[in-house]
Nucleic acid binder design. Sequence first.
DNA 1: ATTTGCCCTGGTGT
DNA 2: AACACCAGGGCAA
Length: 305
Amino acid sequence: MILRLSGPFDLDATLCCGQVFRWERRDDWWLGVVGDDVLRVRQEGDVLEFSGVDEVFIKHYFSLDHDIIKIAEEIGKDGYIKAALRAYWGLRLVRQPPWECLVSFICATYKSVAAICQMLQKLSAKFGEGLSFEGYEYYAFPSADRLAAASLAELESCGLGYRASYVLETAIMVSNGRHDLVSIGRLPYEQAKRALLDFPGVGLKVADCVLLFSLEKTEAFPVDVWVKRILQRYYIDHFDADFARKLATQRGLSDSSYARLNAFGRAYFGAYAGYAQEYLYHYERCFANRKLEKGNRAYAKAKMS
DNA sequence: ATTTGCCCTGGTGT
DNA sequence: AACACCAGGGCAA
């Protein structure tokens, strides 16, 4: 099927920016499993070609209803974010199934993206329902019920390490029906965040990722080591000297420091702070780090405000 | 209220 | 080839 895009969209950036882990490239197609559907997509200019699902699904999953131009005007507060917007223009948030998203980011702690992909792949192959699509075998992401019935050893065999018990306990909580992700998603941002913190393995950062990537809280602003670095490099003037020194010296990121950086992101970028976070994050990881030398980075900073 | 050490394991670079 | 090194945090002491 063919869909002519009416707004900016960059499929590659959208799938590579660290929000999803179960898409793979085969030739010039992207293949993914979403819920119980296997689908493939490719983009050529303003034409999106796809199969496996209908147009309504594609528009919803890739957030094609979001007005990127308006969002960019709203979050484009300075030269640095504008450069990121330019570099990956058309990057969009994906509306992921909440359960898979929750497990993904519980598994993501202290792991590289490649390792996260592998853990989720093993989990799906071991516990997920088999789905065949155009001659290949795929697996749906296992339900909470299925994972709740798994043993700790089985989960560990998927490479989860100490995350196995977090996933198991979380699966049991969801499976019991006492913690419903859809209901949590209906709460306002702060309340939904508090509710997510009940799950073992879910701290402030994981909660913000789940809120942003699957519960449609576009104001969520996850702060990981990359975002912390970005804020230190380009936005440090927005914080007092004491806090700046604290950020530079403390090893990880305490809850209070997290809360401050997170609050800044939401106050500064506004209702679509999550979009700002994704553009900044992807830009810093893929573009600024490699292609820009220190001189250019200083240049980018000089262009701010 | 904050800080510190530990958690498992696979990917990546040398 | 084998072997450090460490990664997109959370938790408990």
